[in-house]
Design a protein around this nucleic acid. Structure first.
Lengths: 200, 200
DNA sequence: AATTTGTACGAACGATCGTACAGTTAGTTT
DNA sequence: AAACTAACTGTACGATCGTTCGTACAAATT
């Protein structure tokens, strides 16, 4: 078992695809998924435009693949570490602090990838919007469930989750737009007082 | 005095310009200021592309004019009514509720214009970003100063303003992306408890 | 009445967009 | 060694982008 015979050509293709998607996610976090163009992507990666195109078949598929690739990075960096802890206050705190650190260290150069694309696609129809909205719902649900995992809750978990996520997104938005790291300090203070109130 | 001689051509031009900018702001709230194209604007308004272009001279100037036009609408709908009240809790409450109502009634079809363009331009350089950032700073400062106008504050005004604005933006984002008006209910509850805590 | 001024138009430009398709290269299979 | 296959390239397409320019016409100035 294991050690399945691999086709070197396919493996190379998958590696190229990963490189394309990594760069695509970086660009999209700054310029948006519409600002992302196949020609520019090809130029920056020094491959042919048709080579990039062939991997996805359409721009919409490229956008969808980029969203999925960014989601994987997000899950690896923010969600998984928190889920390694048992439900409770510690897990919630790691989840929130993990998000702030992920945004603050500019995992994506334009700040949080999903903040950028949510704002870009929130008001237009289409499969990309649907995918982005679905990831957003998953994130909201995860935060709410993580809040619910805290014993002796004094308040509505959905309400607490709403407020916590608001602080995170606000920190990202302010720090990127105004180049002001103090927004993270504000967000951490807000999270702390919100948590103290919810648990107290 | 008064009654400045009116140039019929100029007046007609200014009216056309206002129509262009109103539509431009509507489009931009949905598709962004980059998604806004001069050709599309001309088609929708049933005027010539060069006619639209001539009003601004460049796309960047069109974008800047659109931002200024949207700011005027925002000020008229949200800021001015609140400033009619004397400093204090009532003014602060009207300012926040005014913002939520402005977002909820979809003054711009894509929700808050500035939420959309802040997220679009927050990570790229240029005059449009600078203008957007400046309006953002003004709004933050206004909220903070309005908080400071409340007597017997129990907490840091800057911190309270950060949290309040976070609730507003979160409501807009969630309601547009998920077509969920309940986000405004959550935001109003969050604002209320935040205010009670700050004044209490 | 003659002239200047400002708005709007139509046509055209070079560039770039997404997409199509036939050909080249290199690794796999027979 | 020959046949096959998957990744990738080169060229070309129609559409649209922002922009330029010369022109037409109406309003204001003289």
């Amino acid at each position: 078992m294991g050690g399945v015979k691999v086709d070197g050509r396919v493996e190379r293709g998958e590696q190229t695809r990963r490189q394309i998607l990594r760069r695509a996610a970086e660009i999209a976090s700054v310029e948006g998924l519409e600002g992302l163009s196949i020609g520019r992507l090809a130029t920056e990666l020094e491959v042919s435009k048709s080579g990039v195109f062939a991997h996805f078949g359409s721009k919409e598929e490229l956008q969808l693949a980029t969203v999925r690739a960014a989601a994987k990075i997000f899950v690896d960096e923010v969600v998984t570490p928190a889920l390694d802890l048992p439900p409770g206050v510690a897990r919630l705190e790691l989840l929130l602090e993990g998000w702030l650190a992920y945004s603050e260290r500019r995992t994506f150069p334009g700040g949080c990838f999903f903040y950028a694309v949510q704002a870009e696609f929130d008001a237009r129809p289409g499969r990309v919007r649907d995918a982005v909205a679905e990831y957003g719902r998953s994130w909201n649900a995860l935060v709410r469930e993580t809040v619910e995992g805290v014993p002796d809750l004094a308040v509505d978990a959905g309400q607490v989750a709403f407020e916590l996520v608001a602080f995170l997104e606000m920190a990202n938005a302010q720090s990127v737009l105004h180049d002001d790291p103090a927004a993270y300090t504000r967000a951490r203070a807000a999270v702390r007082s919100c948590l103290d109130r919810a648990i107290g």
